[in-house]
Amino acid sequence: MKAIREARGLSLQQLAKDIGRDPGFLSRVENGQQGAGDETIHRYASRLAVPIAAITHEEKPRDQERPGAAHEEHD
Rank of each mutant, 00 (worst) to 15 (best):
M1T: 04
A3R: 15
A3N: 14
R5D: 03
R5S: 03
E6C: 13
A7I: 08
A7H: 11
A7E: 14
G9R: 14
G9C: 10
L10S: 03
L10Y: 09
L10T: 01
S11P: 00
L12N: 08
Q13T: 12
Q14T: 04
L15F: 03
L15A: 02
D18C: 00
I19G: 05
G20E: 02
R21A: 11
R21W: 08
P23H: 07
P23I: 01
G24S: 07
G24F: 02
F25Q: 02
L26Q: 00
S27K: 03
N31I: 06
G32L: 07
Q34L: 09
G35T: 10
A36E: 03
A36G: 05
A36V: 00
D38T: 06
D38C: 07
E39D: 11
E39G: 03
T40Y: 07
H42D: 05
H42V: 08
H42E: 13
R43K: 13
Y44M: 04
Y44L: 05
R47C: 04
R47F: 06
A49L: 12
A49D: 09
A49V: 03
A49Y: 09
V50T: 04
A53K: 12
A54I: 05
A54P: 01
A54Q: 13
A54C: 12
K60R: 15
P61M: 12
P61A: 15
D63L: 09
Q64V: 02
E65V: 03
R66E: 11
R66N: 13
R66C: 04
G68Q: 09
A69P: 00
A69T: 02
A70W: 07
A70G: 02
E72A: 10
H74V: 04
